[in-house]
Design a protein around this nucleic acid. Structure first.
Lengths: 351, 351
DNA sequence: TTGAAAGCGCTAACAA
DNA sequence: TTGTTAGCGCTTTCAA
């Protein structure tokens, strides 16, 4: 005989959303027993468990995680926040996928959002995630400084930075060896005998862009090249301006024999310029970032490939370890880039 | 003079996470006043508001949305679930971005996850989202039937299906005009005088694949071609098998003069085969789905482009309308595909 | 093995 | 304009 009154509380509508109380009443057990079953806790007889499970199926009951986490000691929401440059670009979306795979396997859901290189978005998206009490954060820092995150970090909100290291806060980071990758590009071109270079990079206020330029120029200088004379363009933020700049270089009195483009989009612009002018087999090109179809172009495009999937995987594993209580000192993990030889970077300087 | 006892409850640790009660005590107001300020409700004097705001800053307080939604009448969590084929592929990630933009502007966060064409994942991911009480669902159906969602749909959980229409449930859907797009591809090739075709498609159990094949074949038949004789390959699920099949076709006794590849990955395999055999300027190719660099290949690749951003935008707007209470009958929205002429599809049949 | 009571942080309803 | 009380659905604590 059921003694509770809660049956009266069930709306006549059969499509109300049942609570644990409803399940308990239907199964004729206490609410705590339902909780035990739903959370796979021990000390429930097989018969009782079956009875409860049957009631959950009858009512189509689903545990409310948020309500539970409110009272639960660890207060975990089983969700994390992920801030990427842009979920639509291949670099971001590969990271996204790698992270999803790891958290998914642990039953943790991922909120992802795009920053568009906008510091104001960084702030507002982080606020949105914090308000949802995510268990951790993986983010590409864009604001000049991340010191504002210190209070959260001390409150034991784990965070891992990706692609760029944070400033003003000590935390884990996972980044590509940008300087070394660009250095290798320079060495590769120098080995073919090039002496006339051009450098096209994106926003110079972004850490990675600076590192790539430094790496590239350092190697040129080691080879005795006066980098002050190397045509250098920073702030090339879209394909069309990259194309225009490349056209200007190609048509100049002393065109470069080798071009280094420090980023995906920039590479696309340069490729268009080379194709239009028919110089694609005469001027060497190495691009930072691999891209789809790079091997199908004429010539194939030699690139310094990053490994976004690897970055995502490592970041996810670090965050998971932190969530699980890992207290080791924070550290920056460096994911090596890779020179992929396909043709465009092996063109020798014109006689 | 504060009379509450809750100050004792604040841990000595300065890095505890403050509650609304703590803010209220510090500001010397009632908890409901803090709630009013945090939710921008009226009827708070400017002075009080300032005092509360100051306290929130001092404590670094952040409203807990989940706790609030528990009691709030509308029970909204301000989050939605998004199920995509694969967040890493360009089609999915463009949709993802379009949806993010619209929900973000409304303060609604997006849980995204990848299905990998796996019906079991569809079920488990939906369960995960429902357990988090998302306010709505946008999903690419993969399971044979979505009738299992009827209870949730009747409980007033809005949902919009994308890319494919659901089966077994009446709900909004946003899809590409697959049949019409493929039909147009056929017409385009027929107009160049082709009579020997080959068709390569992906998993035939996927609705869109069937529609594309139907559209393509219908147009061929209209032109008097016996489609029973057209070499047709379904279940081409990766680039390498597409390449092998294309190589077989190219090297056969009677090679096709025009190939239609019904999906991105398949197109990549065919392109490789054409390039390897040097037939890229001899055999015509039209692919379904646009891709990066399609214009940079030799020849440029003629495609039937889908508009994933548009699909995402419409789906997001529909879901938002439903969340806001729109009760109109459910409907399927069709996003037109677009023929993009670039060269490969304009190659005439060999003499 | 089971369940009753308290309370997580917040909003609704209502009183002052 | 402000504050008090109850209670959202759940887990914890502790008693049976």
């Amino acid at each position: 005989m059921l003694t509770t009154v809660s049956n009266e509380m069930q709306p006549k509508n059969p499509n109300y959303r049942p609570t644990m109380r409803n399940v308990a009443d239907l199964a004729g057990v206490g609410i705590k027993t339902v909780s035990r079953v739903m959370n796979n806790e021990p000390n429930v007889s097989e018969a009782t468990r079956e009875r409860v499970l049957k009631a959950t199926r009858q009512l189509n009951y689903q545990l409310d995680m948020a309500a539970g986490s409110l009272k639960r000691t660890d207060r975990k929401t089983m969700s994390i926040g992920l801030l990427l440059p842009n979920v639509a670009n291949p670099f971001s979306s590969e990271i996204n996928r790698a992270i999803e795979d790891i958290f998914n396997a642990r039953g943790i859901a991922v909120f992802a959002a795009s920053l568009d290189d906008d510091a104001a978005r960084e702030a507002s998206l982080i606020t949105a995630f914090l308000g949802r009490r995510v268990d951790g954060l993986i983010l590409t820092p864009i604001a000049a400084n991340q010191a504002y995150l210190i209070p959260e970090h001390s409150r034991d909100l784990p965070m891992v930075f990706i692609d760029r290291e944070p400033r003003g806060i000590e935390a884990d980071a996972v980044v590509t060896d940008n300087a070394e990758g660009a250095r290798r590009a320079a060495a590769h071109l120098l080995a073919r005998g090039h002496t006339r270079f051009a450098y096209l990079g994106d926003r110079f206020d972004i850490q990675t862009a600076q590192q790539r330029q430094n790496g590239f120029f350092t190697e040129l200088e080691k080879a005795g090249i006066d980098t002050g004379l190397v045509p250098t363009f920073n702030g090339v933020i879209d394909e069309e301006s990259a194309r225009q700049i490349a056209l200007g270089l190609i048509n100049s009195a002393e065109p470069p024999t080798a071009i280094f483009s420090a980023q995906n989009i920039v590479t696309f612009g340069v490729l268009h310029a080379l194709k239009e002018t028919g110089k694609n087999h005469e001027i060497a090109l190495v691009g930072f970032d691999d891209f789809l179809m790079a091997d199908m172009l004429e010539p194939g495009v030699t690139v310094i490939a990053q490994h976004p999937g690897e970055i995502g995987r490592i970041a996810a594993e670090r965050l998971l370890a932190r969530i699980d209580g890992d207290e080791q000192p924070s550290k920056t993990y460096i994911v090596p880039s890779e020179l992929i030889v396909r043709g465009s970077g092996e063109i020798p300087p014109a006689a």
